[in-house]
């Protein structure tokens, strides 16, 4: 049972990561820096709860703000370029952040042992949950509550005018610009929202794994972050959730019985999925037919 609870935790946190990339992808930007914002959130939240003994909620709030500000600061220079240049710029930023934490040591003496991040060894002893008597189930509920809140906010954002503006920038930048949208502001805003979400996700991640180190936040995690929304489709937030369940639940855990072959199949299935459904699992057409199926009895003309 604990295994499934743990898996549900992983899926929840990765959904947050995927949603942060979803937000940026809506404006047509491919950002490989989400893992870096995730790392910033993880380290900030962990330092606040472990070294400064803050409450988790306060620490998560601060980590969200710090990640958001980082994303905003990266957004301005990085969004001068687009396409491949942006991919490389954000990739380089992500690697630079990872290397920063690789060289980052800040420890204090606490009784017998030293606590705090220690360069290549990483940051151990993040024991907020056990120390405050949270059971695995409590943590799981908390994670999914956050996921639900973030998804609801993004859903609302999608339906509102702001979402339409973001999609307009993503579909055709020039047209959006000429209809009076401040393209740079929209992109930086999307990046900032993405940073905030990644910061929350990272903060939670640090606390349930209890040990973070720089290698966890490398290019692979950044690629996963954009893989979820792209595989799931950008038509709505549930695509990302679906893709996280597919990758973490099915490809990584479900195929464990295949042993060594699982890793081989992993890349191949991504390639296959992209060939068969280039616009993602839940593309606009898929959503429409799903709606027809679900609401066929109630309203024949509405959906």
């Amino acid at each position: 049972m604990d295994f499934y609870l743990g898996l549900a935790q992983v899926i929840g946190v990765h959904t947050l990561l995927g949603l942060s990339a979803y937000c940026v992808l809506l404006t047509g930007q491919v950002s490989l820096a989400q893992a870096a914002f995730f790392a910033v959130g993880a380290y900030v939240a962990a330092i606040l709860t472990v070294i400064f003994k803050w409450h988790l909620f306060a620490a998560l709030g601060v980590s969200a703000v710090v990640s958001g500000l980082t994303a905003c600061a990266v957004g301005f220079p990085a969004l001068r370029v687009k396409g491949l240049m942006l991919v490389v710029a954000t990739l380089a930023f992500g690697e630079a952040v990872r290397l920063f934490f690789f060289n980052f040591t800040y420890q204090i003496q606490a009784g017998e042992l030293k606590i705090g991040p220690h360069g290549a060894e990483g940051f151990r002893q993040i024991r907020y949950f056990p120390e405050h008597g949270w059971s695995t189930f409590d943590v799981l509920m908390f994670i999914w509550l956050m996921v639900a809140i973030v998804m609801a906010c993004l859903w609302w954002l999608d339906q509102s005018r702001a979402g339409a503006v973001m999609r307009a920038v993503g579909e055709d930048e020039v047209a959006a610009h000429s209809s009076g949208i401040n393209v740079t502001a929209v992109k930086v805003l999307a990046m900032t929202i993405g940073g905030v979400i990644a910061g929350i996700g990272g903060g939670i991640f640090a606390h349930y794994t209890t040990h973070i180190e720089h290698v966890q936040f490398g290019v692979i995690l950044a690629t996963f972050a954009i893989a979820y929304p792209i595989l799931g489709g950008l038509s709505n937030v549930f695509g990302t959730l679906l893709a996280v369940i597919f990758i973490q639940g099915f490809l990584i855990e479900g195929l464990r019985f295949l042993g060594d072959w699982r890793n081989l199949l992993f890349g191949a299935l991504i390639v296959l999925a992209m060939n068969l459904r280039p616009r993602g699992f839940l593309d606009a057409g898929g959503v429409a037919s799903l709606k027809r199926m679900l609401f066929a009895g109630k309203e024949s003309s509405g959906a």
Partner: peptide, 13 residues
């Protein structure tokens, strides 16, 4: 985006 992802899949593969 789809080609980007498929080349990532190929990289892993």
């Amino acid at each position: 985006l789809a080609t980007l992802m498929s080349t990532v899949g190929l990289l892993l593969l």
